[in-house]
Design a protein around this nucleic acid. Structure first.
Length: 448
RNA sequence: GUGGGUAUAGCUCAGUUGGUUAGAGCGCUGGAUUGUGGUUCCAGAGGUCGCCGGUUCAACUCCGGUUACUCACCCCA
Protein backbone atom coordinates (compact mmCIF):
# COMPACT_ATOMS: atom_id res chain seq x y z
CA UNK A 1 0.00 0.00 0.00
CA UNK A 2 1.02 3.56 -0.52
CA UNK A 3 2.08 5.12 2.80
CA UNK A 4 0.19 8.17 3.98
CA UNK A 5 -0.73 10.05 7.15
CA UNK A 6 -4.10 11.54 8.14
CA UNK A 7 -4.82 15.03 6.88
CA UNK A 8 -3.75 17.84 9.13
CA UNK A 9 -1.00 15.74 10.72
CA UNK A 10 2.73 15.86 10.11
CA UNK A 11 5.93 13.90 10.57
CA UNK A 12 8.97 15.68 11.96
CA UNK A 13 12.50 15.01 10.77
CA UNK A 14 15.40 15.00 13.28
CA UNK A 15 16.22 18.56 12.24
CA UNK A 16 12.65 19.71 12.80
CA UNK A 17 12.42 17.96 16.14
CA UNK A 18 15.60 19.73 17.27
CA UNK A 19 14.09 23.10 16.33
CA UNK A 20 10.77 22.34 17.98
CA UNK A 21 12.51 21.20 21.15
CA UNK A 22 14.44 24.44 21.19
CA UNK A 23 11.14 26.34 21.30
CA UNK A 24 9.59 24.05 23.91
CA UNK A 25 12.68 24.17 26.12
CA UNK A 26 12.90 27.95 25.97
CA UNK A 27 9.25 28.27 26.96
CA UNK A 28 9.59 25.64 29.66
CA UNK A 29 12.64 27.31 31.22
CA UNK A 30 10.80 30.61 31.53
CA UNK A 31 7.70 28.94 32.99
CA UNK A 32 9.81 27.20 35.63
CA UNK A 33 11.67 30.40 36.44
CA UNK A 34 8.37 32.13 37.24
CA UNK A 35 7.41 29.37 39.64
CA UNK A 36 5.05 27.27 37.51
CA UNK A 37 4.86 23.49 37.83
CA UNK A 38 4.19 21.00 35.06
CA UNK A 39 1.17 18.73 34.83
CA UNK A 40 0.18 16.32 32.11
CA UNK A 41 -3.19 14.88 31.28
CA UNK A 42 -4.29 12.02 29.06
CA UNK A 43 -4.87 12.57 25.37
CA UNK A 44 -8.34 11.11 25.91
CA UNK A 45 -11.00 12.65 28.09
CA UNK A 46 -14.51 11.47 28.74
CA UNK A 47 -16.58 12.99 25.98
CA UNK A 48 -18.93 14.47 28.57
CA UNK A 49 -16.00 16.49 29.94
CA UNK A 50 -15.43 18.10 26.56
CA UNK A 51 -18.85 18.57 25.00
CA UNK A 52 -20.59 21.86 25.51
CA UNK A 53 -17.42 23.68 26.51
CA UNK A 54 -16.51 25.10 23.12
CA UNK A 55 -19.89 26.02 21.69
CA UNK A 56 -21.81 24.11 19.04
CA UNK A 57 -19.06 24.78 16.48
CA UNK A 58 -16.46 23.43 18.86
CA UNK A 59 -18.45 20.27 19.55
CA UNK A 60 -18.37 19.47 15.84
CA UNK A 61 -14.59 19.72 15.89
CA UNK A 62 -14.11 17.22 18.71
CA UNK A 63 -12.45 13.95 17.78
CA UNK A 64 -14.46 11.06 19.18
CA UNK A 65 -12.98 7.71 20.08
CA UNK A 66 -15.15 4.81 18.98
CA UNK A 67 -16.14 2.47 21.80
CA UNK A 68 -14.44 -0.92 21.88
CA UNK A 69 -16.06 -4.31 21.65
CA UNK A 70 -19.45 -4.88 20.13
CA UNK A 71 -20.26 -1.19 20.14
CA UNK A 72 -23.25 -1.54 17.85
CA UNK A 73 -25.03 -3.85 20.29
CA UNK A 74 -25.10 -1.04 22.84
CA UNK A 75 -25.79 1.72 20.32
CA UNK A 76 -28.90 3.89 20.27
CA UNK A 77 -30.90 1.96 17.66
CA UNK A 78 -33.48 4.70 17.21
CA UNK A 79 -30.85 7.33 16.51
CA UNK A 80 -29.08 4.97 14.11
CA UNK A 81 -32.33 4.20 12.27
CA UNK A 82 -33.12 7.89 12.05
CA UNK A 83 -29.59 8.57 10.73
CA UNK A 84 -29.19 11.13 13.52
CA UNK A 85 -25.41 11.23 13.87
CA UNK A 86 -25.35 13.83 16.62
CA UNK A 87 -27.63 11.74 18.81
CA UNK A 88 -26.15 8.36 17.90
CA UNK A 89 -22.58 9.40 18.69
CA UNK A 90 -23.36 9.56 22.41
CA UNK A 91 -23.96 5.83 22.42
CA UNK A 92 -21.03 5.06 20.12
CA UNK A 93 -18.23 7.07 21.72
CA UNK A 94 -17.76 7.75 25.37
CA UNK A 95 -14.27 9.21 24.97
CA UNK A 96 -12.76 12.01 22.92
CA UNK A 97 -9.39 13.62 22.28
CA UNK A 98 -8.66 16.83 24.14
CA UNK A 99 -9.49 20.00 22.20
CA UNK A 100 -7.40 22.36 24.31
CA UNK A 101 -5.48 22.29 27.58
CA UNK A 102 -7.68 24.63 29.57
CA UNK A 103 -10.74 22.41 30.04
CA UNK A 104 -8.67 19.34 31.03
CA UNK A 105 -6.85 21.64 33.44
CA UNK A 106 -10.12 22.79 34.98
CA UNK A 107 -11.13 19.16 35.41
CA UNK A 108 -7.73 18.43 36.92
CA UNK A 109 -8.07 21.24 39.46
CA UNK A 110 -11.48 20.06 40.60
CA UNK A 111 -10.46 16.41 40.83
CA UNK A 112 -7.25 17.17 42.72
CA UNK A 113 -8.47 20.08 44.77
CA UNK A 114 -7.46 18.40 48.02
CA UNK A 115 -3.88 17.90 46.86
CA UNK A 116 -3.45 21.34 45.36
CA UNK A 117 -2.27 24.41 47.24
CA UNK A 118 -3.79 27.62 45.93
CA UNK A 119 -2.84 29.75 44.15
CA UNK A 120 -1.91 26.86 41.88
CA UNK A 121 0.54 27.76 39.13
CA UNK A 122 0.78 25.17 36.41
CA UNK A 123 2.16 24.85 32.92
CA UNK A 124 1.34 22.21 30.36
CA UNK A 125 2.95 21.51 27.00
CA UNK A 126 1.02 18.84 25.13
CA UNK A 127 -0.66 18.20 21.80
CA UNK A 128 -4.35 18.88 21.22
CA UNK A 129 -6.61 17.70 18.39
CA UNK A 130 -9.26 19.47 16.36
CA UNK A 131 -11.20 18.02 13.42
CA UNK A 132 -10.88 21.33 11.60
CA UNK A 133 -10.29 21.74 7.88
CA UNK A 134 -6.52 22.10 7.73
CA UNK A 135 -4.87 25.02 6.02
CA UNK A 136 -1.72 27.07 6.31
CA UNK A 137 -0.53 27.24 9.92
CA UNK A 138 -3.50 25.16 11.01
CA UNK A 139 -3.37 21.45 11.74
CA UNK A 140 -5.57 18.75 13.26
CA UNK A 141 -2.86 17.88 15.76
CA UNK A 142 -0.82 20.69 17.25
CA UNK A 143 0.94 21.62 20.47
CA UNK A 144 -0.21 24.18 22.96
CA UNK A 145 2.00 25.61 25.67
CA UNK A 146 -0.32 26.81 28.41
CA UNK A 147 0.58 28.58 31.61
CA UNK A 148 -2.18 29.36 34.11
CA UNK A 149 -2.68 30.27 37.73
CA UNK A 150 -5.94 29.50 39.52
CA UNK A 151 -7.21 30.47 42.91
CA UNK A 152 -6.23 34.14 43.04
CA UNK A 153 -7.75 37.39 41.87
CA UNK A 154 -4.51 39.28 42.09
CA UNK A 155 -3.73 41.37 39.05
CA UNK A 156 -0.08 40.72 39.82
CA UNK A 157 -0.51 37.57 37.75
CA UNK A 158 -1.76 39.48 34.72
CA UNK A 159 1.43 41.51 34.91
CA UNK A 160 3.49 38.38 35.44
CA UNK A 161 2.06 36.73 32.34
CA UNK A 162 2.89 39.78 30.25
CA UNK A 163 6.46 39.51 31.53
CA UNK A 164 6.52 35.81 30.65
CA UNK A 165 5.48 36.64 27.10
CA UNK A 166 8.13 39.32 26.95
CA UNK A 167 10.87 37.05 28.24
CA UNK A 168 10.05 34.05 26.06
CA UNK A 169 9.95 36.05 22.85
CA UNK A 170 13.05 37.99 23.83
CA UNK A 171 14.91 34.72 24.36
CA UNK A 172 13.64 33.38 21.05
CA UNK A 173 14.73 36.63 19.39
CA UNK A 174 11.27 37.30 17.93
CA UNK A 175 10.21 40.96 18.10
CA UNK A 176 6.54 40.98 19.12
CA UNK A 177 3.72 43.25 20.14
CA UNK A 178 1.84 42.21 23.26
CA UNK A 179 -1.64 43.71 23.18
CA UNK A 180 -3.99 43.74 26.11
CA UNK A 181 -7.55 44.77 26.84
CA UNK A 182 -10.22 43.94 29.35
CA UNK A 183 -13.46 42.16 28.67
CA UNK A 184 -15.18 44.50 31.11
CA UNK A 185 -14.23 47.47 28.96
CA UNK A 186 -15.95 45.80 26.03
CA UNK A 187 -18.96 45.18 28.27
CA UNK A 188 -18.86 48.86 29.18
CA UNK A 189 -18.80 49.86 25.52
CA UNK A 190 -21.83 47.68 24.84
CA UNK A 191 -23.59 49.18 27.85
CA UNK A 192 -22.85 52.77 26.85
CA UNK A 193 -24.02 52.00 23.32
CA UNK A 194 -27.19 50.53 24.81
CA UNK A 195 -26.73 47.04 23.37
CA UNK A 196 -25.68 44.98 26.39
CA UNK A 197 -27.83 42.13 25.16
CA UNK A 198 -25.88 42.09 21.88
CA UNK A 199 -22.49 41.95 23.59
CA UNK A 200 -21.49 38.68 21.95
CA UNK A 201 -22.37 39.90 18.45
CA UNK A 202 -20.45 43.10 19.09
CA UNK A 203 -17.26 41.42 20.30
CA UNK A 204 -17.28 38.84 17.52
CA UNK A 205 -17.50 41.69 15.08
CA UNK A 206 -14.85 43.86 16.73
CA UNK A 207 -12.48 40.90 16.78
CA UNK A 208 -12.30 41.09 13.00
CA UNK A 209 -11.24 44.73 12.93
CA UNK A 210 -7.62 44.17 11.94
CA UNK A 211 -8.76 41.88 9.15
CA UNK A 212 -11.69 43.70 7.56
CA UNK A 213 -11.19 47.29 8.79
CA UNK A 214 -13.63 49.64 10.49
CA UNK A 215 -15.96 49.80 7.49
CA UNK A 216 -16.10 46.02 7.37
CA UNK A 217 -16.88 45.88 11.08
CA UNK A 218 -19.68 48.43 10.65
CA UNK A 219 -21.40 46.42 7.94
CA UNK A 220 -20.78 43.21 9.88
CA UNK A 221 -22.47 44.70 12.95
CA UNK A 222 -25.36 45.89 10.80
CA UNK A 223 -25.76 42.35 9.47
CA UNK A 224 -25.81 41.11 13.04
CA UNK A 225 -28.72 43.41 13.80
CA UNK A 226 -26.99 46.16 15.74
CA UNK A 227 -28.55 49.61 15.27
CA UNK A 228 -26.62 52.27 13.37
CA UNK A 229 -26.95 54.55 16.39
CA UNK A 230 -25.10 52.05 18.55
CA UNK A 231 -22.57 51.35 15.82
CA UNK A 232 -21.69 55.05 15.65
CA UNK A 233 -21.12 55.14 19.40
CA UNK A 234 -19.04 51.98 19.36
CA UNK A 235 -16.92 53.18 16.46
CA UNK A 236 -16.33 56.45 18.24
CA UNK A 237 -15.04 54.75 21.38
CA UNK A 238 -12.92 52.25 19.47
CA UNK A 239 -11.06 55.05 17.72
CA UNK A 240 -9.59 56.06 21.06
CA UNK A 241 -6.10 54.84 21.79
CA UNK A 242 -5.46 55.41 25.49
CA UNK A 243 -7.03 54.37 28.76
CA UNK A 244 -7.10 57.98 30.00
CA UNK A 245 -9.22 59.16 27.08
CA UNK A 246 -11.52 56.22 27.51
CA UNK A 247 -12.27 56.75 31.19
CA UNK A 248 -14.83 59.60 30.85
CA UNK A 249 -16.66 57.82 28.04
CA UNK A 250 -17.26 54.73 30.14
CA UNK A 251 -17.91 56.48 33.46
CA UNK A 252 -21.63 55.66 33.31
CA UNK A 253 -20.91 51.91 33.19
CA UNK A 254 -19.99 49.90 36.29
CA UNK A 255 -18.31 47.24 34.20
CA UNK A 256 -16.43 49.82 32.17
CA UNK A 257 -15.09 51.56 35.28
CA UNK A 258 -14.04 48.25 36.78
CA UNK A 259 -12.26 47.26 33.59
CA UNK A 260 -10.27 50.47 33.53
CA UNK A 261 -9.43 50.04 37.21
CA UNK A 262 -8.10 46.55 36.57
CA UNK A 263 -5.94 47.65 33.68
CA UNK A 264 -4.50 50.46 35.74
CA UNK A 265 -3.60 48.12 38.55
CA UNK A 266 -1.94 45.75 36.13
CA UNK A 267 0.02 48.68 34.71
CA UNK A 268 1.19 49.60 38.19
CA UNK A 269 2.62 46.13 38.67
CA UNK A 270 4.21 46.33 35.26
CA UNK A 271 5.54 49.80 35.94
CA UNK A 272 8.67 48.59 37.69
CA UNK A 273 9.64 46.16 34.94
CA UNK A 274 11.28 46.88 31.61
CA UNK A 275 9.80 45.06 28.67
CA UNK A 276 11.93 44.39 25.60
CA UNK A 277 8.90 44.25 23.34
CA UNK A 278 5.99 46.58 22.64
CA UNK A 279 3.30 46.24 25.29
CA UNK A 280 0.21 48.24 24.43
CA UNK A 281 -3.42 48.73 25.29
CA UNK A 282 -5.76 47.94 22.41
CA UNK A 283 -9.44 48.42 23.05
CA UNK A 284 -10.30 46.64 19.79
CA UNK A 285 -8.85 43.38 21.05
CA UNK A 286 -11.75 41.01 21.69
CA UNK A 287 -10.58 37.37 21.41
CA UNK A 288 -13.68 35.63 20.20
CA UNK A 289 -16.39 34.27 22.42
CA UNK A 290 -14.39 32.35 24.93
CA UNK A 291 -14.83 32.21 28.66
CA UNK A 292 -12.72 35.28 29.39
CA UNK A 293 -14.16 37.77 31.86
CA UNK A 294 -11.32 40.16 32.68
CA UNK A 295 -7.98 41.06 31.12
CA UNK A 296 -7.27 39.56 27.72
CA UNK A 297 -3.98 39.25 25.85
CA UNK A 298 -2.80 38.61 22.36
CA UNK A 299 0.68 38.46 20.87
CA UNK A 300 1.59 39.07 17.24
CA UNK A 301 5.01 38.90 15.63
CA UNK A 302 6.32 42.15 14.19
CA UNK A 303 7.66 41.97 10.62
CA UNK A 304 5.79 38.76 9.77
CA UNK A 305 2.35 38.32 8.32
CA UNK A 306 0.87 35.66 10.56
CA UNK A 307 -2.07 35.23 12.88
CA UNK A 308 -1.61 35.57 16.63
CA UNK A 309 1.16 33.45 18.12
CA UNK A 310 -0.21 33.62 21.64
CA UNK A 311 -3.24 34.67 23.61
CA UNK A 312 -5.08 34.31 26.85
CA UNK A 313 -6.82 36.09 29.66
CA UNK A 314 -8.69 36.01 32.95
CA UNK A 315 -11.66 33.69 33.47
CA UNK A 316 -13.67 34.02 36.65
CA UNK A 317 -15.47 30.73 36.76
CA UNK A 318 -13.70 28.06 34.77
CA UNK A 319 -14.27 25.19 37.20
CA UNK A 320 -17.94 26.03 37.71
CA UNK A 321 -19.15 23.44 35.22
CA UNK A 322 -17.32 20.80 37.24
CA UNK A 323 -19.04 21.89 40.45
CA UNK A 324 -16.35 24.08 41.98
CA UNK A 325 -17.53 27.67 42.25
CA UNK A 326 -15.72 30.98 42.54
CA UNK A 327 -12.27 29.86 41.48
CA UNK A 328 -10.68 32.60 39.41
CA UNK A 329 -7.95 31.84 36.94
CA UNK A 330 -5.76 33.64 34.47
CA UNK A 331 -3.53 32.15 31.85
CA UNK A 332 -1.94 32.48 28.45
CA UNK A 333 -1.00 30.11 25.67
CA UNK A 334 1.88 29.97 23.21
CA UNK A 335 1.19 28.72 19.68
CA UNK A 336 4.28 26.59 19.16
CA UNK A 337 3.52 25.74 15.53
CA UNK A 338 3.16 29.33 14.46
CA UNK A 339 6.19 30.38 16.50
CA UNK A 340 8.08 27.74 14.53
CA UNK A 341 6.85 29.19 11.24
CA UNK A 342 7.79 32.72 12.30
CA UNK A 343 11.28 31.66 13.37
CA UNK A 344 11.72 29.72 10.15
CA UNK A 345 10.72 32.74 8.10
CA UNK A 346 13.00 35.12 10.02
CA UNK A 347 15.81 32.53 10.16
CA UNK A 348 16.07 32.77 13.94
CA UNK A 349 16.95 29.20 14.87
CA UNK A 350 20.43 28.83 16.37
CA UNK A 351 22.90 27.32 13.91
CA UNK A 352 24.60 24.95 16.31
CA UNK A 353 22.67 22.07 17.75
CA UNK A 354 24.04 20.67 21.00
CA UNK A 355 22.21 17.40 20.50
CA UNK A 356 23.73 16.77 17.06
CA UNK A 357 26.49 14.29 16.30
CA UNK A 358 29.93 15.78 17.02
CA UNK A 359 32.29 13.29 15.43
CA UNK A 360 32.12 10.32 13.08
CA UNK A 361 34.85 7.68 13.20
CA UNK A 362 36.04 6.13 9.96
CA UNK A 363 38.00 2.88 9.93
CA UNK A 364 40.07 1.64 7.00
CA UNK A 365 40.14 -2.10 7.66
CA UNK A 366 38.77 -4.79 9.90
CA UNK A 367 41.44 -4.49 12.62
CA UNK A 368 41.16 -0.74 12.87
CA UNK A 369 37.37 -0.99 12.90
CA UNK A 370 37.48 -2.93 16.17
CA UNK A 371 40.01 -0.46 17.53
CA UNK A 372 37.85 2.46 16.38
CA UNK A 373 34.87 1.04 18.20
CA UNK A 374 36.78 1.10 21.48
CA UNK A 375 37.78 4.71 20.75
CA UNK A 376 34.12 5.54 20.11
CA UNK A 377 33.19 4.15 23.52
CA UNK A 378 35.86 6.30 25.20
CA UNK A 379 34.65 9.43 23.40
CA UNK A 380 31.09 8.73 24.53
CA UNK A 381 32.31 8.20 28.09
CA UNK A 382 33.89 11.65 27.86
CA UNK A 383 30.45 13.05 26.99
CA UNK A 384 31.12 13.58 23.28
CA UNK A 385 28.40 12.60 20.79
CA UNK A 386 30.28 10.08 18.68
CA UNK A 387 29.43 7.46 16.11
CA UNK A 388 31.35 4.88 14.09
CA UNK A 389 30.52 3.88 10.53
CA UNK A 390 29.31 0.27 10.79
CA UNK A 391 31.73 -1.26 8.29
CA UNK A 392 35.32 -0.45 7.20
CA UNK A 393 34.12 0.10 3.65
CA UNK A 394 35.39 2.52 1.01
CA UNK A 395 36.46 5.78 2.61
CA UNK A 396 34.62 7.75 -0.01
CA UNK A 397 31.39 6.14 1.02
CA UNK A 398 32.05 6.77 4.69
CA UNK A 399 32.86 10.41 3.99
CA UNK A 400 29.65 10.75 2.05
CA UNK A 401 27.80 9.51 5.11
CA UNK A 402 29.70 12.03 7.26
CA UNK A 403 28.49 14.81 4.95
CA UNK A 404 24.93 13.59 5.08
CA UNK A 405 25.05 13.60 8.87
CA UNK A 406 26.48 17.16 8.76
CA UNK A 407 29.06 16.10 11.32
CA UNK A 408 31.69 18.80 12.07
CA UNK A 409 34.56 16.35 12.70
CA UNK A 410 35.74 12.93 11.54
CA UNK A 411 38.40 10.71 13.06
CA UNK A 412 40.27 8.47 10.64
CA UNK A 413 41.79 5.25 11.91
CA UNK A 414 43.88 2.84 9.85
CA UNK A 415 47.12 0.87 10.19
CA UNK A 416 49.28 4.02 10.51
CA UNK A 417 47.19 5.44 13.35
CA UNK A 418 47.19 2.15 15.25
CA UNK A 419 50.99 1.84 14.95
CA UNK A 420 51.73 5.40 16.12
CA UNK A 421 48.94 5.54 18.67
CA UNK A 422 47.85 8.87 17.24
CA UNK A 423 44.54 9.42 15.54
CA UNK A 424 43.80 11.61 12.56
CA UNK A 425 41.23 14.30 13.39
CA UNK A 426 39.70 16.09 10.45
CA UNK A 427 37.76 19.34 10.62
CA UNK A 428 35.06 18.86 8.01
CA UNK A 429 34.51 22.58 7.47
CA UNK A 430 38.14 23.55 6.81
CA UNK A 431 39.43 20.18 5.64
CA UNK A 432 42.42 20.55 8.01
CA UNK A 433 43.73 17.29 9.49
CA UNK A 434 45.87 16.86 12.57
CA UNK A 435 47.50 13.87 14.23
CA UNK A 436 46.48 13.80 17.88
CA UNK A 437 46.26 11.45 20.85
CA UNK A 438 42.84 10.43 22.11
CA UNK A 439 43.24 12.71 25.16
CA UNK A 440 44.03 15.70 22.96
CA UNK A 441 41.01 14.99 20.81
CA UNK A 442 38.75 14.72 23.84
CA UNK A 443 40.06 18.06 25.09
CA UNK A 444 39.53 19.76 21.77
CA UNK A 445 36.05 18.39 21.06
CA UNK A 446 34.94 18.85 24.64
CA UNK A 447 35.60 22.60 24.43
CA UNK A 448 33.31 23.23 21.50
C1' G B 1 -20.22 23.59 6.84
C1' U B 2 -19.04 26.99 1.88
C1' G B 3 -15.86 27.90 -2.38
C1' G B 4 -11.23 27.44 -5.44
C1' G B 5 -6.67 24.53 -6.88
C1' U B 6 -3.88 20.07 -7.54
C1' A B 7 -3.17 14.57 -8.35
C1' U B 8 2.61 11.74 -13.65
C1' A B 9 9.41 7.92 -10.69
C1' G B 10 11.39 7.85 -3.58
C1' C B 11 11.14 13.81 -3.77
C1' U B 12 10.18 18.49 -6.83
C1' C B 13 7.92 18.91 -11.35
C1' A B 14 7.73 18.98 -17.32
C1' G B 15 4.64 16.47 -20.93
C1' U B 16 2.87 20.42 -27.59
C1' U B 17 -4.41 21.54 -30.99
C1' G B 18 -5.59 13.95 -28.14
C1' G B 19 -1.06 10.10 -31.86
C1' U B 20 2.66 4.98 -31.53
C1' U B 21 8.60 3.27 -26.77
C1' A B 22 5.90 9.07 -20.79
C1' G B 23 10.78 12.74 -19.66
C1' A B 24 14.16 16.17 -16.52
C1' G B 25 16.55 17.64 -11.97
C1' C B 26 17.53 15.89 -7.16
C1' G B 27 18.00 11.34 -4.49
C1' C B 28 19.39 6.02 -4.69
C1' U B 29 22.88 1.79 -6.55
C1' G B 30 27.47 0.66 -9.11
C1' G B 31 31.93 2.46 -11.59
C1' A B 32 36.01 6.25 -13.04
C1' U B 33 39.50 6.22 -7.69
C1' U B 34 44.58 0.52 -3.46
C1' G B 35 44.30 6.18 2.95
C1' U B 36 39.98 11.04 2.39
C1' G B 37 34.03 14.17 1.39
C1' G B 38 30.85 18.34 -0.52
C1' U B 39 32.81 19.36 -7.57
C1' U B 40 32.85 16.37 -12.26
C1' C B 41 31.97 12.20 -15.73
C1' C B 42 29.76 7.29 -17.08
C1' A B 43 26.23 3.41 -16.28
C1' G B 44 21.90 1.34 -13.80
C1' A B 45 17.45 0.49 -11.02
C1' G B 46 12.77 2.82 -10.30
C1' G B 47 6.00 4.66 -13.25
C1' U B 48 -1.10 -0.07 -13.88
C1' C B 49 0.13 8.81 -15.39
C1' G B 50 -4.99 8.81 -7.88
C1' C B 51 -9.48 5.60 -8.79
C1' C B 52 -14.16 4.43 -11.74
C1' G B 53 -16.79 5.38 -16.03
C1' G B 54 -17.72 8.08 -20.81
C1' U B 55 -16.34 10.28 -25.79
C1' U B 56 -12.80 8.61 -29.75
C1' C B 57 -9.71 4.58 -34.69
C1' A B 58 -6.59 6.41 -30.55
C1' A B 59 -6.82 9.41 -23.73
C1' C B 60 -1.41 11.22 -19.17
C1' U B 61 -4.10 14.84 -22.38
C1' C B 62 -11.17 15.99 -23.41
C1' C B 63 -15.93 15.12 -20.34
C1' G B 64 -18.60 13.17 -15.86
C1' G B 65 -18.19 11.04 -11.15
C1' U B 66 -15.23 9.69 -6.94
C1' U B 67 -11.28 9.77 -3.39
C1' A B 68 -7.09 12.14 -1.36
C1' C B 69 -4.26 16.32 -0.56
C1' U B 70 -4.05 21.57 -0.52
C1' C B 71 -5.50 26.99 -0.23
C1' A B 72 -9.17 30.54 1.26
C1' C B 73 -13.84 31.67 4.06
C1' C B 74 -16.41 30.42 8.86
C1' C B 75 -13.77 29.59 13.35
C1' C B 76 -9.31 29.30 15.55
C1' A B 77 -3.50 28.38 17.64
Amino acid sequence: MKPSIPKGTRDFTPEQVAKRNYIFETIREVFIKYGYQPIETSAMENLATLTGKYGTEGDKLLFKVLNNGDFLAKADKEALAALDSAKAVKSLAKRGLRYDLTVPFARFVVMHRNDITFPFKRYQIQPVWRADRPQKGRYQEFYQCDVDVVGSNSLMYEAELVLIYDEVFTRLNIPVTIKYNNRKILEGIAEVAGISEQFVEMTTSIDKLDKIGMEGVRTDMENRGISTDAIDKIAGILSIGSIDEMRPLLSSSDAGRKGIEELEEMSQYLGTATAHNTVQFDCTLARGLSYYTGCIFEVTADNVKMGSIGGGGRYDDLTGTFGMKDVSGVGVSFGAERIYDVMQELDLFPKSDKSALKVLLIAYDKDSHHYAFSVTIKLREAGINADLYPTPTKIQKQMKYANARKVPFTIHIGGNEMERGKLTLKDMNTGVQSSLSLEEIINQLGDH
